[in-house]
Amino acid sequence: MQTATVVNAPAGAALAPADPGGSAAAASRRANLLLLRRLALPVLAAALVLAVWEVGTRWAQVPEVLLPPPSAVVDRLVNAFPLLMKHAWPTIWQSLAGFAIATVLGISLATLLSASTIIRETLYPNVVFFQLIPKIALAPLFVVWFGLGPEARLSFSVFVSFFPVVIATLAGLDNVERDLLRLCRALTASNWQTFVSVRLPHAMPYIFSGMKIASTFAIIGVIVGEFITSRAGLGYLILFASAQAETALILAAISVLCVFGLAFYGVVALCERWTIERFGDRPR
């Protein structure tokens, strides 16, 4: 801030001195430090836990079946890598497909619910009711209905991840400023026009926050499906390894699952950020 063009203060009032705050370089240094701290602290904490785990299991000579040290898990991860990848593939494609189908169905149902009062009054209480059921309990039914193939896991994954999308989308479609809807009415806009030009764009950040939840639910759905009946997939591999008392392999499979889940969630979260940036009314 500069007061270079000298303005004469009226009598009795002194001009405040120029902002004594630091230079731009200092500000950017502060920002970098802050970022470093926000990255470094959680990474350090995780590293500390792993170190304690490694040292603790070795020092107390915990049997590897109970809890192998992280280094053993990494060893297993490396030498069983082809096996892990072979089983990761069905889990990954079924999660992605389940997520995609759930998103399309969820947005469609929410659109229908927001468009028609009658449909909403009929269906929405049921949607909420279904949402309250512990959905995992229904997993065996999907095997009964869809057999032992991937259809059972895919459909269960859709079923589990569908509700967050419906509920978030509906909130977004409904949460439009009333004045904006009044404006549409004043401009003689049709319901369809109002939906396309106002409701749907407004709902975009909501939809993506629902999809963010759905992305983790879709993976849970597939893994649970694989636990129940499957001959492939990471869920199957985890069950198989536990039957063999191969704890390191279980943890290796879980690690692969974590990496995939993190990447999947990360991509959707990035999309969500973008939609908030694009459609929200304040920058983030």
């Binding site: 004045d179 904006l180 009044r182 404006l183 030009s197 764009p201 929200g280 009314d281």
Partner: peptide, 8 residues
């Protein structure tokens, strides 16, 4: 209206 009600 009282609020600008612009599309953000």
């Amino acid at each position: 209206f009282q609020d600008p009600t612009l599309l953000p």
